[in-house]
């Protein structure tokens, strides 16, 4: 190995971290506030993810839902969907989780300065976008309008209700939400998230749209944004894949020539258009 004087790294060792707080958000989602050993700061960018593990139950990629401005801990919103996340939901304050990361490319906020920000969040897609929403609120003066569109299947799936109440009552945030199917108590909009886009009055060339949601949502939201004439290069999407290793090796998250854990999960829309397997 003469020609390979490279410093190799221990890529798969987690930092055993402590759960500071657990909030029940819905029947299937909980929010965990976590702190790394010795109060180390995670140092993430909005939109990045960490690999979370519990020994014996495996590891999974989970988006960070808190703003980097909120320290020393960070937050993850986790839906119960399998062995690892079921086990996570049984953990309480003081419990331990293995953390690796942060990984991937998050939102680069530098080009967003002074722009109007449009957040389009479908279902649990609000969680990764919340790291950016909270960041823009914390640095409110650096941005133009903040517009949050949020859609869920039904009212019982609404996340971050306390935050939403604040957003709804704040003059410098425009918040609109809808549910696909209402229930008896629901008094708001009913319909898919794309119905929230046409009524918006936008300064299109000065608007940055960030979109996170289930795969099915992207195609329809892209059409709606296109009819609003938002330039492709002002649109950012975050993609969900099974990033098993987080370090660009295992291959599970690969979309054409892009490893989502390295180049993504946040992509500018023109790049997505080059990746046929993306959405």
């Amino acid at each position: 190995m003469e020609a390979m004087a490279v410093e190799s790294k221990k890529l798969y060792n987690p930092l055993m971290s402590k759960i500071l707080k657990v909030d029940i958000l819905t029947e299937t989602e909980k929010r965990f506030e976590i702190i790394l050993p010795e109060d180390q700061i995670l140092g993430h960018k909005p939109g990045q993810f960490v690999e979370v593990s519990i020994f014996g139950y495996g590891e999974a990629p989970i988006s960070i839902c808190s703003s980097p401005t909120k320290t020393p801990g960070f937050e993850l919103t986790v839906r119960k969907t399998g062995r690892l996340t079921d086990k996570m939901h049984l953990l309480e304050k003081g419990g331990q989780l293995g953390i690796r990361g942060p990984f991937g490319n998050g939102f680069d906020v530098e080009p967003f300065q002074k722009k109007d920000m449009l957040f389009v969040c479908g279902g649990i897609g609000l969680a990764p976008l919340k790291s950016l929403i909270d960041y823009t609120i914390a640095k409110r003066d650096d941005f133009g309008r903040l517009m949050i569109l949020y859609g869920t299947k039904n009212p019982s799936e609404i996340l971050f209700k306390e935050d939403i109440e604040v957003w709804q009552n704040q003059d410098d945030i425009e918040f609109h939400m809808t549910v696909d199917r209402s229930d008896e108590d629901w008094k708001g909009n009913v319909g898919v998230i794309t119905t929230l886009i046409p009524p918006l009055k936008l300064d299109t060339s000065n608007t940055i749209a960030t979109v996170v949601g289930p795969p099915i949502m992207y195609k329809f939201v892209m059409l709606a944004l296109k009819s609003k004439r938002i330039p492709d290069e002002n649109i950012y999407l975050s993609l969900e894949r099974r990033m098993k290793c987080g370090v660009g090796k295992c291959g599970h998250c690969q979309i054409n020539n892009s490893y989502v854990c390295q180049e993504g999960p946040v992509y500018p829309y023109p790049r997505i258009k080059q990746l046929e397997e993306a959405i």
Partner: peptide, 10 residues
């Protein structure tokens, strides 16, 4: 080696 050099392999 590229990106994240991996000690397990190397």
């Amino acid at each position: 080696t590229k990106g994240n050099p991996e000690s397990n392999y190397l």
